[in-house]
């Protein structure tokens, strides 16, 4: 491995690990004021919204294809199916669809 590549790997691993690790080491948990604890409890729902949109609209160059995939996942999940069924079902529907497109 070249020195440059080694420096990239090292640098990237350090700056990726530090933000992941610091909160666990610095914060004991539950010592924040309740208002901030509530905000942290809101974070997962907000993050999921931001992770889904707008990314889901552009994972495929055809936006209709992307929207059908998102709608399929939503409908499968809405029936109460577990995550694996939702994932495999959406892939399956898009694979069948792409055979006709």
């Amino acid at each position: 491995m070249s020195m440059t590549m080694a420096a990239i790997v090292l640098g990237m691993s350090v700056v990726t690990y530090i933000p992941r690790m610091l909160p666990f080491v610095l914060l004991k948990g539950k010592e924040l004021p309740s208002f901030w604890q509530n905000i942290l409890r809101n974070v997962p729902y907000a993050t999921l919204g931001a992770l889904i949109f707008p990314g889901v609209l552009s994972f495929h160059e055809n936006i209709v294809f992307a929207l059908i995939g998102a709608a399929a996942a939503f409908l499968i999940a809405f029936t109460g199916a577990n995550i694996i069924i939702t994932v495999l079902g959406s892939i399956g529907i898009l694979t069948v669809l792409s055979l006709f497109m």
Binding site: L48, F59, G69, A72, A73, T86, V87, L94
Partner: peptide, 10 residues
Amino acid sequence: GIALYAMFIG
């Protein structure tokens, strides 16, 4: 490509 988005949605 839908897999991870389907997981987030699920």
